[in-house]
Structures are given as structure tokens and as C-alpha cells.
């Protein structure tokens, strides 16, 4: 698939399949097209040409069905500042189609999974960057999606928080398919099962981390 904005090509003829249950890392410098690709997968953008399938659903023709199966955390970890954490998670759960009876259990589950208990009744605008990021991930997981999409999940976090988020993502592998983007080589190397390198809107290569002893060297050979 491709994505163009007028005459500017953001993604050119990208051909990629992500396996169910894997953690796929999308690596590339700023402006390489990572966020565009992630926004296409999340349904926020539509491809200009080509075919995009998300969890077996055509992302254009069956857009609502595809969106039902994903959880998405944008780069800035947006939250509604006037809502409390629990309230925000319940809102997102309802919006994603969970029944009223399932909402409370789902919210309690993600609050426990993301260790949000200390801030569960606080307004989201008062949260630290780390708790805000976790809240954003919790909203993406609240409906137990097949595919979790994370745009630069380690951005702005301190080293301890980065380790916690990494462990969390690794813990999701198998039960969920995870696509994460990053411009930090080490972060992708430690978290992903497979990695794809995106440069200037083109996918330059895809490899399993097990077959890539030196990610840095491989990246430099492509760049």
C-alpha cells in the first residue's frame, strides 16, 4: 500500500505481513513514515492505493470492524484531562463496544495489569508522564484487542518506566499481536520478535531479531 499527501509520498509501496501473536518493531528515524504507517493501521488514515488488512478485515471496506479489533496508543499518549483514570478507561471500554456489565471488570483488569491502582481515582491531567503512558496503554487494552499498536511507547519515560513498559509489552506477546514503532535501536532490539526498517517512506528490510545479532550494523548498512 501507499500513502500520499498531495504530491508528497509518505509511504511508498509498503508490503508487509505481521504474524499473529508476535511483537513487531518498526524502526526508523524521525520522518521516515512510522507514524503514518501506524495511523493507517489504526484507521486514523486511509491508504491512497493498495490493500490493507487488519486482523482479517479490510481496513477501508470494513473499517469499523477492523477498529473494533485494535487497541491504539498514539505517540503523545492522549487522555481526557477532565476525567479520572477509572472514568477514562470506562469511557474507552464503552466506546469500544463492551457491555455495561463487562466494563467494570475490564477496567479493574487493566488497572491491575498496568499497576494504576495508586492513581485510579486521580484526574488524568495530574498524572506524571509514566502514569499517563500507562493509562494510555490501559485504554488500548481495555477491550482485550487482537492487535495492540504503540507509537513510540518509550518516549519521554525514565529508565525504570522504559523497563516496565518493555516487560509489559513482552508479557502481551502470544496473547496479543503487538506493533510498536521506535527510533531507538536498543529499545526495539530488546522488545521485538521481528523488526522492519523504514527509511524515507520505504520498508528497507524485515528480519527476525534472533537472526540479527547486530541490529545497529544492519541498520547502518541500509541507511
Amino acid at each position: 500500500m501507499s500513502k500520499r499527501y498531495g504530491t508528497t509520498v509518505a509511504l511508498a509501496s509498503l508490503d508487509l505481513e505481521i504474524e499473529r501473536g508476535e511483537v513487531f518493531g518498526l524502526l526508523g528515524p524521525n520522518g521516515s513514515g512510522k507514524t503514518t504507517f501506524i495511523r493507517l493501521l489504526s484507521g486514523y488514515l486511509l491508504p491512497t492505493d493498495g490493500h490493507l488488512e487488519v486482523c482479517g478485515c479490510d481496513a477501508v471496506q470494513q473499517s469499523l470492524e477492523a477498529r473494533r479489533r485494535i487497541g491504539y496508543v498514539p505517540e503523545t499518549a492522549p487522555v481526557y484531562g477532565y476525567m479520572r483514570v477509572r472514568e477514562f478507561l470506562a469511557f474507552m471500554a464503552r466506546l469500544r463496544g463492551l457491555s455495561e456489565s463487562a466494563v467494570r471488570d475490564a477496567v479493574d483488569r487493566v488497572i491491575a495489569a498496568l499497576a494504576l491502582e495508586p492513581v485510579a481515582d486521580r484526574l488524568t491531567r495530574t498524572l506524571s508522564r509514566g502514569f499517563r503512558q500507562r493509562t494510555a496503554i490501559a485504554q488500548a487494552l481495555v477491550h482485550d484487542p487482537e492487535l495492540l499498536i504503540l507509537d513510540e511507547p518509550a518516549n519521554g519515560l525514565d529508565p525504570r518506566q522504559i523497563i516496565e513498559i518493555r516487560l509489559l509489552i513482552r508479557g502481551l506477546a502470544g496473547r496479543h499481536t503487538v506493533l510498536m514503532s521506535s527510533h531507538v535501536l536498543g529499545e526495539v532490539a530488546r522488545t521485538a520478535d521481528r523488526v522492519g526498517i523504514l527509511l524515507d517512506g520505504r520498508l528497507r528490510g524485515v528480519r527476525a531479531m534472533a537472526d540479527t545479532p547486530d541490529l545497529e550494523e544492519w541498520f547502518l548498512s541500509l541507511a
Binding site: 495511523r39 489504526s42 484507521g43 469499523l64 477498529r67 473494533r68 498514539p74 492522549p78 474507552m92 466506546l95
Partner: peptide, 14 residues
Amino acid sequence: RNDTLELLLTAPVG
């Protein structure tokens, strides 16, 4: 501006 529109538009609602 707050990027919350991304949350709304990627949720399964028209």
C-alpha cells in the same frame, strides 16, 4: 490539538 481526536476516530464509532 490534544490528539484525543485520534482516540475517537480510531474507536469503532461512526
